[in-house]
Design a protein around this nucleic acid. Structure first.
Lengths: 150, 150
DNA sequence: CCATATCTGTTTCAGTTGAAACGAGTTGGC
DNA sequence: GCCAACTCGTTTCAACTGAAACAGATATGG
């Protein structure tokens, strides 16, 4: 059981796969819209729910707060987001799309989904569902392993 | 079809999952042996085949040559690798374990495999096989998509 | 042979990262 | 009320990253 074949070692395989996909997508976002993956994630999250605070985005995006802060700042600078202060609690931001931001979102979301769809043509629908379900369980197991350490 | 749910977007899901796993493993490597993931990958590759040149490791590890160069340098500095010059071609290195390196490998490989095994207890054996097979196909599809661009 | 192209591994450099320190705002206990 | 503890988002800082420049060694071809 000491056979350490890197190609069969799942942490390695997942890392290589995820990195290739990210690289491919980020190249497209950059080329088409001049933004990187953190900015794209902020857009994707705000596309579903608005307005949100930075912390809301941190929770929904699995990014740390420094990264979110910088991505939001970039998007505000590009004119895609408006950053208002919450009336009742001045620590909180109220982030939402500007008209330009909404327009960007409506062009960027289809690009991402089309690329994903083309990638996933190699799987049958129920294979994909099964794959996602197994990803869920792998993630759940990480939660459990983390929890039992404490 | 414009419903961009980040949690159902596979590139995002894979990225989050891969990052969590990497973080967990690298914490362990660092704590137990004082090395990071690039160093660990070099060790894993040399554990199967020796001696190798830096370029051989680049090809087998999916790391770029700068990263390999730095990881090798770290391991040589720690006394785990010997870096000799190839007699017939002085551009090439001949990298191999020192006794200390072999010893490190024999302790580090089981640690990685045990952690992986514990993580994968959440899947039945044939579920795992299926999952890996689907990963292969997803990676193959990336190859195909890249090839047809040219 | 000599000039040029190619290959190897290292180094440089500008950009990115995340942990930690931070300032401003708010809450809770007394 | 007031002080301490906490929360939110920004900034700092040291480490890491990879593309590109690089230097040395080898191959090619005229």
């Amino acid at each position: 059981m000491n056979d350490l074949d890197l190609d069969g070692f799942l942490p390695y395989r997942l890392n290589v796969l995820a990195k290739r996909v990210s690289k491919e997508l980020s190249r497209r976002y950059q080329q088409a819209f001049g933004i990187a993956i953190p900015e794209w994630r902020v857009m994707a999250i705000l596309g579903r729910e608005q307005p949100l605070s930075s912390n809301d985005i941190v929770e929904r995006s699995h990014m740390d707060k420094a990264k979110v802060s910088r991505a939001v700042n970039t998007l505000v600078g590009l004119g895609h987001l408006s950053r208002d202060v919450h009336p009742g609690d001045q620590r909180l931001l109220r982030l939402s799309f500007t008209p330009s931001g909404r327009d960007l979102y409506q062009r960027i979301a289809p690009l991402a989904l089309e690329w994903e769809a083309q990638w996933l043509t190699c799987l049958l629908p129920d294979e994909l569902a099964h794959y996602k379900a197994l990803c869920d369980r792998l993630e759940q197991q990480l939660d459990d392993m983390g929890a039992e350490e404490a």
